[in-house]
Nucleic acid binder design. Structure first.
Lengths: 142, 142
DNA sequence: TCTTTTCATTTGTATATACAAATATTAAAA
DNA sequence: TTTTAATATTTGTATATACAAATGAAAAGA
């Protein structure tokens, strides 16, 4: 059923969530190749890009709550992809060698994912749409 | 931190989810007035609009899996807002009187929510954005 | 220096959601 | 008619996420 046919659901809440679920699904398929859920892959990408980042800074960057970051880090630590280094009240997060080795494959997944959705949604269209969505998200505040 | 500052997260997956979380938050605040989570409110809205709808049809309309609909219906049944009428392998869902009484208040919440986000995002902008998002969602398929 | 406040993280608990397997029921095939 | 296949829903299990409370550590005030 087309979204437009859902008379009772024609509001921002429904549309945003339905859209996010579909994107999540596409992303899940893509990152199965490295055995990571999209959220885990995103977090690992952040840690790989800035080793030693504080947990709270990661939360701010990913716009998730600190508790969610803790939970995600637990999983990544179980998989030996990151280590948490607690110093006083701060916790710094570092990628392991295993994670560093995974970097090229992760980039490949990201490229593949970008390719998939630009193919489906159009290159310029999706670019503008994402920009617009980011602007909208910023307007909605934290 | 502005989304645009997150260099590592500039992809459709991240943007769509961050946006959906923010919308969810705004919606949660709004529907607290009737003591319902946005997803519950949406489902109840569907049932109120089309009493007797089958569980599977609700799932299709809301673009959620049947199992999720079962779980949501359990909660609404606990709250005495809907009843499930199982006939053979089909289950039809009806709103209770309590739910019908809630209808005006629910409409008020919906109006308030629409007003909130059009005020933040702009009337025409949000309208076009939602349309565009629905089109994108359709393109992504099920 | 000792106490209080603030801050970063983690834990306990709860919700939303999905997938795969189990159930139960109707329809189709033999 | 008996078996087999298809279908609708529910259950078991797992993930992502949040909020509120707990913990632990540093900073500020007395």
């Amino acid at each position: 059923m087309k979204t437009s046919e859902c008379k009772n659901c024609n509001c921002l809440y429904f549309s945003a969530n339905a859209f996010a679920r579909k994107v999540e699904k596409l992303a899940s398929e893509t990152w199965k190749k490295v055995g990571l859920a999209p959220s885990h892959a995103t977090l690992l990408g952040v840690v790989l890009a800035e080793p030693g980042l504080q947990a709270g800074q990661i939360a701010a960057q990913m716009q998730l709550t600190p508790s969610t970051i803790t939970r995600l880090l637990e999983k990544l630590e179980e998989k030996k992809l990151v280590i948490r280094n607690t110093d006083g009240k701060m916790t710094n997060v570092y990628p392991t060698q295993k994670a560093k080795d995974l970097k090229p494959l992760m980039k490949q997944c990201m490229d593949e994912f970008n390719e998939k959705y630009t193919k489906i949604l159009g290159k310029e269209e999706s670019k503008h749409f994402i920009q617009n969505m980011n602007i909208m998200a910023d307007k909605l505040g934290s």
